[in-house]
Amino acid sequence: MDKPVRHIMGLSGGKDSTALAIYMRDRVPEMEYFFCDTGAELLETYEYLAKLEVYLGKKIVRLSSERNFDHWLKIYRGALPSPNMRWCTKVLKIEPLERWIGTDKAISYVGLRADEASRKGYMSKKKNMMSIFPFIDDGLELRDIESLLIESGLGKPSYYEWRTRSGCYFCFYQRKSEWIGLHDSHPDLFERAVAYENKKGYQETASKEAYTWSQGESLEQLLARRNLLKTSVAHPRSSGLLLDILAEDDDDDESFCASCHL
Rank of each mutant, 00 (worst) to 15 (best):
D144Y: 07
R6F: 06
I94N: 03
G10N: 02
A106L: 08
I8K: 03
I94G: 02
S17N: 05
R113Q: 12
E116D: 05
T38I: 03
R143D: 15
M129N: 03
K59H: 14
Q203N: 14
Y55K: 08
K230S: 15
R226K: 15
E178M: 04
E161C: 11
L11P: 00
E66Q: 13
S17H: 03
I101G: 00
N84C: 12
L219W: 06
R99W: 10
G153Q: 07
G139K: 08
S218C: 07
G111N: 03
S207V: 12
C168N: 03
L148V: 04
S185I: 05
S82R: 07
R192A: 11
Y173L: 05
K59R: 14
L63C: 06
S238N: 13
Q215M: 01
W213S: 00
V233N: 07
R165Y: 07
H235S: 09
L223E: 04
P134T: 08
K208V: 12
I60W: 03
S259L: 11
G121P: 02
D144W: 05
Y169R: 00
A195T: 10
R119W: 00
L97Y: 08
Y211P: 00
E248D: 15
Y169F: 13
S17G: 09
D244E: 15
S118Q: 15
S158K: 14
S65H: 06
K127H: 13
S17L: 02
K90E: 12
G78V: 00
D249L: 09
Y202D: 09
Y159I: 06
M9N: 02
G13C: 04
L43R: 12
D184F: 02
R67F: 05
W179N: 01
P157W: 07
I245G: 04
M123D: 12
E41Y: 09
V194P: 04
L42M: 12
V5H: 09
R226S: 07
Y173E: 01
R6A: 07
P187C: 10
S232K: 08
Q221D: 11
D37M: 03
A21Y: 04
Y33K: 09
R62W: 08
K208G: 12
K90P: 07
F256I: 12
R113M: 14
H7L: 11
L246Q: 01
K199G: 07
D37E: 10
V233Y: 07
R99A: 10
S232T: 13
S214Q: 05
M24T: 11
M130K: 11
K199R: 15
I150S: 06
W179G: 00
R25F: 15
L223F: 09
E95C: 02
S207R: 15
Q221T: 12
N68I: 04
A247W: 09
L63N: 03
V194T: 08
N128S: 10
C88I: 04
D252G: 10
I136M: 12
W100V: 04
D188Y: 10
E30D: 15
P134R: 03
L49Y: 02
H186E: 04
D250I: 08
S147P: 01
L149F: 07
L246P: 01
W162G: 01
